[in-house]
């Protein structure tokens, strides 16, 4: 971890963030700085606010207090969405009408497409590459609804990667996904990380992604209770935040 000067824009900068959902405070006073190139796991039990944090960072939820900046720009004014790749928490990638793997992945390019224009040749090859990366190229013409859960999740990862994002946000990417698919997209993420992509991953169980993580953040009841290098006890299904920085211990008592 190289020290960066304080004025280089962070990939994500969260300042004193509180979020309330239906009158209940789900996040309280979160402060985070994530440098470009970091691979961060956000851990915590159900209801600890992990997904809320990610959803607020990408602008799907509004901050009740505090601020989120992406690449130095406050989220409400942020417009360079092609720099962000987002994989929402999903059980299925299918809608009410059949759609092919290729069609779903192509929709990841919308941040770069102009209205009333067909896909360019470069964009088509980006879709093919992205499908190759998650090992779904041979299923490109199949309907997503016919795929297994793990394959659908791989399609969603391909959709997020197709725009070649600088910041990748994954919300529970491994939930309910078979090991074969987990391995494949750990490989896809590793390839992105090698190219300097910043990754923020919410998870219960990191599985094969474990080795990629260089920082973990543990949330508990909407607060950060651990922020530092990952260690073994966190990578299992149950997160026990034994290690707490001295100055943060007060929150738990």
């Amino acid at each position: 971890m190289t020290p960066s000067s304080p004025d280089t824009p962070k990939a994500v900068q969260v300042t004193d963030l509180s979020v309330d959902l239906g009158g209940r405070l789900v996040l309280r006073g979160i402060d985070l700085r994530i440098r470009p190139g970091e691979v961060v796991a956000v851990l915590g039990t159900n209801g600890s606010g992990k997904s809320t944090l990610v959803r607020t960072i990408v602008g799907l939820l509004q901050a009740a207090r505090g601020e989120v900046r992406l690449f130095g720009t406050p989220v409400p004014r942020f417009r360079q969405w092609s720099r962000i790749g987002y994989v929402p928490q999903r059980i299925t990638a299918a809608g009410g009408v059949p759609a092919t793997v290729h069609e779903v992945v192509s929709s990841g390019l919308l941040s770069q497409r102009r209205l009333f224009r067909p896909l360019s040749a470069a964009q088509k090859s980006a879709v093919d590459q992205s499908l190759e990366l998650v090992d779904m190229a041979d299923r490109r013409k199949d309907a997503v609804a016919e795929l297994s859960g793990g394959q659908q999740q791989r399609v969603l990862i391909a959709r997020a990667l197709v725009s070649d994002p600088e910041l990748l946000m994954l919300d529970e990417p491994t939930a309910g996904v078979d090991l074969a698919s987990q391995d494949i997209f750990a490989e896809a993420i590793r390839e992105r990380v090698a190219r300097g992509t910043t990754v923020i991953m919410v998870s219960h169980d990191l599985g094969p992604m474990d080795a990629l993580i260089d920082r973990s953040i543990v949330l508990r009841r909407g607060r950060v209770v651990y922020d530092g290098p990952p260690h073994a006890s966190q990578t299992h299904a149950h997160v026990h935040p034994h290690v707490v920085d001295d100055e943060q211990r007060g929150w738990l008592s």
């Binding site: 799907l60 417009r79 092609s82 779903v104 929709s107 919308l110 941040s111």
Partner: peptide, 12 residues
């Protein structure tokens, strides 16, 4: 129509 939240994060 396919995925409203994802569409929002692509800036639509």
């Amino acid at each position: 129509c396919q995925d409203e939240e994802f569409a929002r994060v692509t800036g639509l």
